[in-house]
Amino acid sequence: MTSTRSVWLTPEAAQRLRTELADLVAAGTTRTRDDPAARGRREERVREIRELLATAVVGQDPPDDGVAEPGMVLTVRYDDVDDTETFLLGMRAAEHGGIEVYSPESPLGAAIAGARPGDRRTYRAPGGRTIGVTLLDAVPYGRAQR
């Protein structure tokens, strides 16, 4: 990771990352015979987690203004199948419990960011198909969990 843009994390996700970091650092200080590739992957993951935690906004809900942005739980309707889905717009690298997470950089996340309820957006799925989606609701993660 080379970005210094802040990311939004739940407190639980931030704690899981801190635990993973501690485990990785402890594994690096033991005198095991690590192959160079495994050591390189571990060191890269340590750098990635440190950067994530250094730039993270942890558990601070965005404004409750209905705008789709990181930290909001969004409900969307897929226009072509008239089906709905609810998910957290946040960092996929850290699990957020039982709710599906879409990154703001994902095709759907990038398309829906900034939308307000009733706004229709389109995005290109990885297979190349264009998908229409309408934002039905956007509430801060903390409010959605209550």
Results as ranks from 00 to 15, higher is better:
Ala54Gln: 07
Gly40Lys: 14
Val46Gln: 09
Gly28Ile: 00
Glu44Arg: 08
Arg47Ala: 13
Arg42Gln: 12
Asp35Gly: 02
Glu48Leu: 13
Gln60Trp: 03
Val25Ser: 01
Val57Gly: 06
Gly66Leu: 11
Gly59Cys: 13
Asp61Arg: 15
Val57Lys: 11
Arg42Cys: 09
Pro36Ile: 09
Glu44Val: 05
Leu21Asp: 01
Ala38Thr: 11
Val46His: 07
Arg42Phe: 07
Val57Cys: 08
Val25Gln: 11
Glu48Ile: 03
Arg50Asn: 07
Arg45Leu: 03
Ile49Met: 09
Arg50Ser: 02
Val57Gln: 09
Ala54Leu: 06
Thr55Leu: 06
Arg18Asn: 11
Asp65Tyr: 09
Leu52Val: 14
Ala56Ile: 00
Pro63Gln: 06
Ala56Glu: 02
Val25Phe: 00
Leu52His: 04
Glu51Tyr: 01
Val57Ile: 15
Gln15Phe: 01
Ala14Pro: 15
Arg16Asn: 15
Arg18Gln: 14
Thr55Ser: 07
Arg16Phe: 04
Arg31Thr: 03
Ala37Trp: 05
Glu43Phe: 03
Ala22Phe: 06
Ala54Tyr: 01
Asp61Gly: 05
Asp35Pro: 05
Thr29Gln: 12
Thr29Asp: 06
Ala14Arg: 15
Asp34His: 13
Thr19Met: 09
Glu51Pro: 03
Arg16Val: 03
Gln60Ala: 12
Thr29Gly: 09
Asp23Cys: 05
Thr30Asp: 04
Asp35Met: 00
Val58Ser: 07
Arg45Thr: 01
Asp23Trp: 00
Asp34Asn: 08
Thr55Glu: 01
Leu52Ile: 15
Thr30Met: 09
Thr30Ile: 08
Asp34Trp: 12
Arg47Ser: 13
Ala38Arg: 08
Leu17Arg: 11
Leu52Asp: 03
Glu20Lys: 15
Arg41Tyr: 05
Asp61Ser: 10
Arg39Met: 10
Glu20Pro: 07
Asp34Ser: 12
Ala54Lys: 01
Glu20Asp: 13
Glu48Ser: 11
Glu20Met: 12
Glu43Trp: 06
Glu48Val: 07
Arg18Ala: 05
Ala27Ile: 02
Gln15Pro: 06
Glu20Trp: 02
Glu20Val: 03
Glu43Asp: 13
Glu51Leu: 15
Glu44His: 08
Ala56Leu: 04
Arg50Pro: 03
Thr19His: 13
Arg47Asn: 13
Asp23Val: 04
Ala22Lys: 14
Thr19Gly: 02
Glu48Arg: 14
Ala56Gly: 02
Gly40Tyr: 05
Leu53Cys: 08
Asp64Ser: 10
Asp65Glu: 08
Val25Trp: 03
Asp23Ala: 07
Leu21Pro: 11
Arg39Val: 07
Thr30Leu: 11
Leu21His: 04
Ala56Trp: 00
Ala27Leu: 15
Arg31Ala: 12
Arg41Trp: 08
